[in-house]
Design a protein around this nucleic acid. Structure first.
Lengths: 196, 196, 196, 196
DNA sequence: AATGAATGAGGGTTCATTCAT
DNA sequence: GATGAATGAACCCTCATTCAT
């Protein structure tokens, strides 16, 4: 494999990555339905006609955006996992949410809003895809609660993630980041009050 | 006023009501963006061109759908208000949510999903409209908590409504009505555990 | 014929007249193509559905607007005819044009702009109608020049009316009423310089 | 630049030019309001949807039609400018008008009729655009009169252009090309009679 | 792979005209 | 005659996707 091959392949992958990142961001801000392939191409600095070499359909681009959010989630939980105490990990998660309150108030949770939008479609299976990303978070939280030795860790995870989605939606609908802070603090208190 | 006058005016209003109801339902199922005027017209049994006699733009129809949801909410809280105990009213609210779990699992909360969608639009002011409907629920809940003599009734309302939006979104994203039941029961327990 | 019959018939005619006047004015301002039946109905204070009892088609309304302008022209020439000297009549005509310079600069000559618009239509014969109104003016001017004993009175009339249409169009296109004044004064000088 | 590059770019520009030419012609014949994008597309041999690749709105197409007329005017005056005597240039202009009498009698002056139509619109600024093209002619004529050393060259230009617009409108309204000939000849005589 | 251009199926909206009462 | 409501044919414009080079 020559250098130029490498660099060409590298450039191609870079384009794919740029498109994916652009899709994640633009779709988060505009919603999947209102986002145009041209919007994403422009944001990625890629000519429109070229997009189809990397993604056969618009739906594939939306799926890539979802994957991108899953990757962000994995990074976050990966960082949190370095903390020895599961309770601290969960608190760290909530603190991250609070830290992103301005984005949440403006555009909502990327995965949550996308899930809500995709669930309105009967076809394509993209809706299930969104659910899968949310379940990643759910599973991770459940593991933490289980490590803490708490009963019904899945129920606790459900409560935590549900609270996150709810407060993001309200913060977004009311355009008020303080909602994230207020409910986030309550969650921190709740986590602290749990036995184990 | 003659009979024919009544029937004429009545028929006209009936059509408007039919369109509003159809808009509320179809938009709930398909989302505002994916819903065409023709979809709503068909559901209401009205020729497409005639829709514009009652609603000048698609946005007005979406606004009417939102109003319809606000009206449903008002009916519900109106019924609950007949209960003497505020705590029972709040429990009744949660029980209603649980009772609608199948719809929520399939399409989400009508107002919440619409709010999430409309918030992606910069223009038109419809986004603020959605927030207003959510605040109606928030305010009603706050009044109940206040009547119970609890501190920070607004925070409690936020927690309650936030939980509702969160569990609706998760139930929808995971297509699992049991999530509504599980979190709903937890909320019932929480309401029962509150002092006052 | 009873009184009420009279008054009803009278009211009906009044409506027709109101519609005609409204058509003349609104069409002058908006052009025939951009003018809606509803626009005219509103301006006349007549319900839309009722218009069709007086005018079977939109074209008939436009024709009525043309007639109205012909009537205005007849009134004007009728007034001028009271002057004993044909040259003074012609000067009076030009002075009237100058006096209406602001309207001309904003909307052009009612008949001229309408003629230009209607001439773009292949069908309906409305185009010929517009020409007929212009010829009324042409013929009147020709009669004045003939009474003055000038040779080629038809050519002189053509020059006069042509100048009027030209200056109206330029004043309108450049939105400058002073063009009417300037060219109008030149015409007055020209009329004064003619022998006879 | 390779041949294929040329042909590709050339083809694209050719299409734009074809659309512009078609717009100029069809709008001249039908008027801006009665001309549909489909009409222009058909005349240019371009699929409707493709038009929007070259012109974002119908108004842009109309503006392009106006530009086309401005270009025709520039060509004409450019040719006339080769004549050494300004008076001959002006006479050449009038003779050109006379030579186009059949077109003028059928459709009027392209710029004049378009200006009249666009001036009925309050919005968009296209109306001002039409005025600008007319002023090009006005300015050119003024320069010729000035070169002749005549007083008030702007007034003379106004008279000349005004006469042109007026005779075009009358010829069109009365569907009589001879009007162009008759008034044109008079203008030629007038130009010849001027001192300088 | 790369890219500007092409294609065509809708979607929202307007409006002359007609209908029912 | 009077009137609000109904109807449907266009029209402008958007956009996912495909094509030609």
């Amino acid at each position: 494999m020559t250098d130029s091959t490498v660099s060409r392949a590298g450039a191609a992958s870079a384009k794919r990555r740029r498109l994916t990142a652009a899709a994640a961001e633009v779709v988060h801000r505009q919603g999947a339905e209102r986002t145009t392939i041209a919007d994403i191409a422009r944001a990625a600095g890629v000519p429109v006609g070229n997009v189809y070499y990397y993604f056969k359909t618009k739906d594939e681009l939306v799926a890539a955006a979802l994957d991108e959010h899953a990757r962000h989630l994995a990074e976050l939980t990966g960082r949190l996992e370095r903390l020895p105490d599961p309770r601290e990990r969960l608190k760290g998660l909530v603190e991250t949410w609070i830290g992103q309150r301005d984005v949440a108030a403006r555009w909502g949770c990327p995965t949550g809003t996308l899930a809500a939008e995709l669930d309105k479609r009967g076809e394509g299976g993209l809706d299930a895809e969104a659910g899968r990303v949310i379940r990643l978070l759910l599973d991770w939280a459940e593991r933490q609660f289980r490590e803490l030795g708490l009963p019904e860790p899945d129920g606790l995870a459900l409560t935590l993630v549900s609270a996150y989605q709810g407060m993001s939606l309200l913060a977004n609908a009311l355009r008020d980041p303080e909602i994230m802070k207020r409910e986030g603090d309550r969650l921190l208190g709740w986590l602290g009050s749990l036995p184990g």
